[in-house]
Design a protein around this nucleic acid. Structure first.
Lengths: 193, 193
DNA sequence: TCAAAACATTAAACTAGTTTAATAAATAAA
DNA sequence: TTTATTTATTAAACTAGTTTAATGTTTTGA
């Protein structure tokens, strides 16, 4: 059950077998059926999660009721609201399962225990946060400089496996456009071919 | 000269006086006159910097020649291209001084030395990267959900000290709009008052 | 298995933001 | 001090993306 997690950690840092074992034992499995929430706006995010099955969306609802998707998470991805988690303030985000999902959860307390007792864990999360940050920085530049059409094309190229599991409504909310306009883009692309 | 740096570090973590001293000694001062570059596209970013005087812009030039500003950095801010720095790949960014500036630089090698020998430094950069990431996440949501006008108003409220030191061209490149449209926005706001 | 809900597409009117170009004002350079 | 360069503003035509609404299709759930 935790093989995927161990493998994922090993990709980032090298730990002794017993250290990785100790760390993984701090995680508990949680099943989240489709359309259920791992986190809702207003709650304080007290966990960090690692998805072992299914698909989540992390999104925000603005004051006009529109949804902006910050990211998706499928198997092998980490998931949390890092803002609420670190500052212990009410979250502005929802984390919702778009499929029946399974996630390994570590509590804030246990994570702090790991920081204090397994020095390499500090490195693990530094490295992971760096990578996440780099990815978001690239997305920010793309959003500032590219048209919705090329953002869509790049999305389909970068995440083909996600594409099949998402509705166009979700993809549009990630790209920052309406699903109506996404439909236009898709038509335009289809005609080209 | 390094008082500002020490103070900034102390805000994030608690270190013994000799540890903070050892760490700060790894930094070297660099003077960058206005319009000069700390980093250019194509170079590998081999440093992390802490601004003690002046003002920098970190920006990207897209294939149409337009500039997108990822962030500004004034006194007391950190500055690097974390993507190029961690992956040791050619940077896609420019870091340019907009005023005569002074920056304290730590090399990649010395930073790794610090990670290996001062365990708290790992925490320092984990915490700093988290905070930077949270800020970028909020900016991403704002860019997806808000109009240019409200993004401009919020920028003026959040960074009043920056506002006076930047041209509208720079602010527009940060907001992701043209300076012509920013001019329209400013007029509209002025009329309202 | 049937009704209800969610989804994708299309059209048409609209608006936020761009483009190009011209002009005046401010800053920098010689 | 004069000239050149950068900056801010305005106008007018344009385009990328939105809004609303209607229609058919697919998925869901009772």
């Amino acid at each position: 059950m935790k093989a995927l997690l161990k493998q994922n950690i090993a990709k980032h840092i090298s730990l002794l077998e017993n250290e990785i074992e100790d760390f993984c034992n701090l995680f508990k499995q949680k099943l989240i059926p489709k359309k259920n929430f791992l986190l809702r706006e207003g709650e304080i995010c007290k966990f960090e999660g690692f998805v072992t099955k299914g698909l989540f969306r992390v999104y925000h609802i603005d004051k006009n009721g529109f949804e902006q998707i910050l990211y998706f998470a499928i198997e092998n991805w980490w998931i949390t609201d890092i803002d609420s988690f670190t500052a212990e303030t009410p979250s502005q985000l929802f984390i919702e399962a778009l499929e029946d999902s399974e996630v390994l959860i570590i509590s804030k307390k246990d994570k702090e225990f790991a920081y204090a007792n397994l020095p390499q864990i500090e490195k693990l999360f530094r490295v992971m946060t760096q990578k996440t940050h780099v990815a978001l920085q690239r997305r920010m530049i793309d959003n500032l400089s590219k048209t919705a059409e090329s953002r869509y094309i790049e999305f389909t190229e970068k995440y083909p496996q996600l594409l099949q599991r998402l509705s166009n409504i979700q993809i549009a909310a990630y790209l920052g456009i309406t699903n109506v306009f996404l439909s236009n883009i898709r038509k335009k692309i289809a005609v080209k071919k």
